[in-house]
Structure formats: C-alpha cells, structure tokens
Amino acid sequence: MKRYWWLGLVFIVALILPFVIGEFWVHVAVEILILGLFAVSFNMIFGYMGQLSFGHAAYYGVGAYATGLLMVKASVPLPICLPASMIAAGICALIFGYFCVRLTGIYFAILTLAFGQLMYYIIFQWYSFTGGDDGLQGIIPPDFLFSATAYYYFTLFVVAAALIVIWYISESPFGYTMRTIRENPDRTRFIGINVKRYMLINFVIAGMFAGLAGGLWGPFNRSIAPDLCNWHQSGTPVFMTVIGGPLGFFGPMVGSVIYTFLMAFVTGFTEYWPLTIGLVIIFVVLFMPGGVLGFFEERVKIIRARALEVGAGESSEKENS
C-alpha cells in the first residue's frame, strides 16, 4: 500500500480544492469527476477486457434519464435515484451486452455503436416519456447539495467510493480473469472459464458505473438531453482513455483531467473546441501511443536506465583503475 501514498495526497488536495479555486473551476472539477468515472467504467471494457465499446454513452444516458425522470416526475430523493440509475443502466447493459460479447474487435465496436444509436433514437423519439429533443429540465438537487461546492463534495465522495469498488474488482481474481481474456480468450476457455459469461458480467458492471456517472450528471447540469446518448458522447471516454493511457487504472481519470480542463480553458476564448481536441488526439495517436501516463512511464524508465548505466559505468571505471 506504500506505493499509493500519492493517492491520499490527491484526495487531500481534492478536499481543499474548493477553498482555493473560484466557482467556475469548482464546476469544472465536478465535470472532471463525473466524466472521469464514466471513462474509468469505459476502460473496464477497453483496457481490461480489450474490446472497444463505441456505444458506452447508452448506459451513461440511461443512467442520466433514470435519475432525471425519477426526480422530475416522481420527486424521488437523489440518494435513491443513483442506485436506480445503476440498476436501469445495468439492465440495459445486460440486454445489449448479451449480444455484444458474442462478437470481438471491429464487430464488437460496431454493434455497441448500433445499440448506442438505437438507445439515442428511442430517447429522441419517445416524446411523451422522455421529452424527446427538448430534454428534461428542472432536475434540481436537494437543498443541502444546491451550491456548487456542496455538490462537488457529494460527487467527490460518490466517485471516490465507486473508484475504490472498481479498483477492488480490477484487482480481484475476476479482474485478472478479464486480463487473461484480453490476452488470450482461447486459452482462457481451455482452463474452464466461461469467457462469454465473464465478459457479460464485466460489461454489465461497466454499464452500471457509467449509469452512476450519468445519474450524477443530471442534477449537476440541472437538465439532460438525448445527446447524452449520441455517439459523440461515446467518443468522449475513448478520447480521455487514449489521452490518459488505457493500461493504468488511473489513466482515464488523468485523461478526464486533461480533456475537461482543456475544454474549459479553450472554450473560454474560441468556439472551435472540436478542432482543438481533434488536433490533440491526432498528436497523441501519432506521437504518444501509450497516452500521457504511458509517455511519462517511458521517460521515467529511460531516465532510470540512464542512471543505472551511469552508475554501472562509474563502478566499472573504478575497477579498471
């Protein structure tokens, strides 16, 4: 556990953050946390299971709509809405995932994309229930969470708790089975593991946490729209994960910090945010294939290797003299 002392540090910084930064940046921080959780849940499928889901926004959107509809139409309190969001997104992921895990590679990506668009058009067209393209307005969080700072702390604790759970899942035998499936599904089957069932369980868990992230989004933004389900939204966690690095647990979170911070910064003085992020992604894909975390790990390795070389060089010189 000694290796993770910096996590405590990050958490303490996150706790005192609202006292240091203005309200605008507190909003950005909430966004970082919610989208970060969304990206981490996406990475359970991408990084750990090795499949690219291009429809992960479906579960994010279903989660957002579950909380939104319950709060607006039935005035259910937020703490009950969030688990409901997870369940709704989980059921949706179970139905879609049942078919998706039968495919791999490009076909998995396209089927998840097709299901994502299916969900988008259902929400978009089901005017009487979801409000169609008008979306849902007036998703007001309870009084004690009304201020930006209060909602920030609430999100921080929910996201931190979720990340701890996902961390335990990824370090459990189940998590290592997922890595085995990623590396070689055939051999995993040979040792008697039901690959499809494991993949489905993972898919459902990932969908549930995406739903939780979606549930947090509605009361934060005060409104939701069908666009939360669209394929652009599915691109966001992919970007974050690739920017941050898919192979570390915290890669997507780092990606969320970079992506969301950059977005808040860039949209401050230009409307051409897509152009900016597009160029950033091309740069990362071409020159930093392991993402930012991978890039720095590589640097650290090189520096360490150099230090070792220098050390070895010095000692051999001593021997010679």
Binding site: G105, V238, V242, P274, I277, G278
Partner: peptide, 21 residues
C-alpha cells in the same frame, strides 16, 4: 484498431470545424 478509429474520429471533429470556418 482503436488508434486508427480515433485518428479518423479526430478527423470528423477537425473537418466539421474547418467547414464551419
């Protein structure tokens, strides 16, 4: 595959804004 997809996806965003410009 994911990197190739991302590259062309990034092109969608860039081309969209270039059209607007």
């Amino acid at each position: 595959l994911p990197e190739q997809l991302l590259l062309t996806y990034a092109m969608v965003l860039i081309i969209g804004d270039l059209i607007k410009l």
